[in-house]
Nucleic acid binder design. Sequence first.
DNA 1: CCATGTCCCTGCAAGC
DNA 2: TGCTTGCAGGGACATG
Length: 316
Amino acid sequence: MPELPEVESVRRGVHEWTAGATITRAEVIDPRILGTTSQRRIAVGAEETFSRSLAGLRIVSAERRGKFMWLTLGESDPALSLLVHLGMSGQFRVQTAADEMHKHTRAIFHLERELGSDFTGSGSAGVGDAGRGPERFEMRFVDQRIFGHLGVQPLAWSHGRFVPASTTHIAADPLEPAFDFEAVVDRLTAKNTALKSALLDQSLVSGIGNIYADEALFRAGVHPLANPSRTRRSRLASVLESAILVMHDALQVGGTSFDSLYVNVNGESGYFDRALLAYGRGGQECVRCSTEIVRITVGGRGTHFCPNCQKSPRYR
DNA sequence: CCATGTCCCTGCAAGC
DNA sequence: TGCTTGCAGGGACATG
């Protein structure tokens, strides 16, 4: 499940491969990828509109806020972006036309890049031919569960920068200059819901998903059901700080599963060998105190915690 | 406005 | 063995 560190790893890979490249053709294999996550009804002609609006545009850069990623596009007025959300299982793969098509390929971006252009990539080994002329390759969007989403969006101002218009409600993430730690803690203190649910609220702070929420609460030693409005401000700050630290740690090792054919994102292996202390460890011993890690459901999400290290709040 | 519940989708595991 | 059922997850939307 890609959260901030994973999406950032993907963004870096996508940027290296595609910045400066031109989209010669955008091919939609499964139009459901163009719908929003809940509304799967696709407007008539959405595929054609999507493809037509991208054809011929140059990719300037890959950017990210929270779990949302987008490519800023040149030669368009107003400035457009290709919005990408990986959902649960979205992946980008850089391949050539000759490469075998993955079963869950939902869209293909045919790209072209002048050899010797100023792309900053880690190399084009294995992609394109060895001769002259533009280098041609494909960036394929693969998504097993179709919780991911692609869309063409104008850019709009939100929380200190331009972002795709449909994401203006998403808060700044902790890696952004606009992120205001104290302001987020202030807003957190007003929340009257499970602390874990508040951590997952992308309009409060973006980028934290189910895994890192559990890890942050474990690291800070705070119960997932604690009510923020009844919790000491210093404890809330500690949890938020832990979330930032654990995501930072994960990002440090997030770029592991790179090779010439992958733009990171190896849904199978890459995500799961992180040093997780709570998430997915239900029934196992706590690494700190050997108490059995408990699994409960909070806001419909699987939640893992140590009942000894993360004491139940007294008001419950 | 705020909090909670439901749905989207697929593959896998468990149960009959 | 082969079917059905339930679960996992992020975010939009509907409801309370």
